[in-house]
Simulated scan of single mutants.
Amino acid sequence: MATDPEFLNHALDLFSDLGRIRTGRMFGGTSLYVDDAMFAVIFGDALYMKADKPLAAEYAGAGSQPFQYDTKSGIRTIPGLTSLPDSAMDDPDEALFWARKSLIPAQKAAAKRAKSK
């Protein structure tokens, strides 16, 4: 599902205080990066944040859901991506709160990838 340009602009506005955000393509969506750390992905009109297991639990406590998609063998869940809480979609301060939390596992993953190269 292609990313809605207006939704992408909204997400970029929400996270503008993080600094320069680079975008990329990811499985038909748009990934958001700070430096080499992918901290969020947009699929259609949904925004998913990078999360490790403890952070995913925090997101779940705020009402977030992990990214899921249908396959021939059933629904596949990607626990490392979880939706931004609805309350943060229109609150830049809350969105930044979550984005800063998501940057931690995103930066760890980026460092691990860089080390393995």
Score class of each variant (00 low, 15 high):
5 P>Q: 00
16 S>E: 14
73 S>D: 11
102 S>H: 04
45 D>M: 09
105 P>D: 05
69 Y>G: 03
26 M>R: 15
59 Y>L: 15
11 A>M: 10
44 G>Q: 14
94 E>S: 15
42 I>Q: 00
113 R>D: 03
62 A>S: 06
103 L>Q: 03
52 D>Y: 12
106 A>Y: 00
51 A>V: 15
18 L>H: 01
83 S>T: 13
100 R>P: 02
62 A>R: 11
73 S>M: 04
28 G>F: 07
35 D>W: 06
60 A>K: 07
15 F>H: 08
59 Y>V: 03
43 F>C: 04
84 L>R: 05
91 D>I: 14
57 A>C: 04
89 M>R: 15
50 K>E: 07
99 A>L: 02
44 G>W: 05
56 A>S: 05
48 Y>R: 00
105 P>S: 07
61 G>V: 04
74 G>V: 01
39 F>S: 09
93 D>R: 01
107 Q>Y: 00
101 K>P: 03
68 Q>R: 08
52 D>C: 13
108 K>H: 00
113 R>F: 06
52 D>K: 08
55 L>M: 08
47 L>E: 02
7 F>C: 07
93 D>V: 00
39 F>V: 05
43 F>S: 05
108 K>S: 03
78 I>A: 12
3 T>Y: 01
2 A>P: 10
95 A>S: 02
38 M>H: 10
109 A>M: 04
59 Y>E: 06
71 T>C: 01
84 L>Y: 10
85 P>H: 06
78 I>W: 15
81 L>S: 01
92 P>T: 07
16 S>T: 09
95 A>Y: 00
38 M>A: 15
3 T>F: 00
53 K>T: 09
65 Q>F: 11
50 K>W: 08
31 S>L: 13
38 M>E: 12
108 K>E: 00
28 G>Q: 05
76 R>I: 13
44 G>T: 00
17 D>N: 09
22 R>M: 14
11 A>L: 13
2 A>D: 13
53 K>M: 11
7 F>H: 08
20 R>N: 04
10 H>R: 15
31 S>G: 15
75 I>R: 10
37 A>F: 11
53 K>H: 10
98 W>C: 03
13 D>I: 08
102 S>F: 07
79 P>K: 14
84 L>K: 02
17 D>E: 15
7 F>W: 06
115 K>M: 04
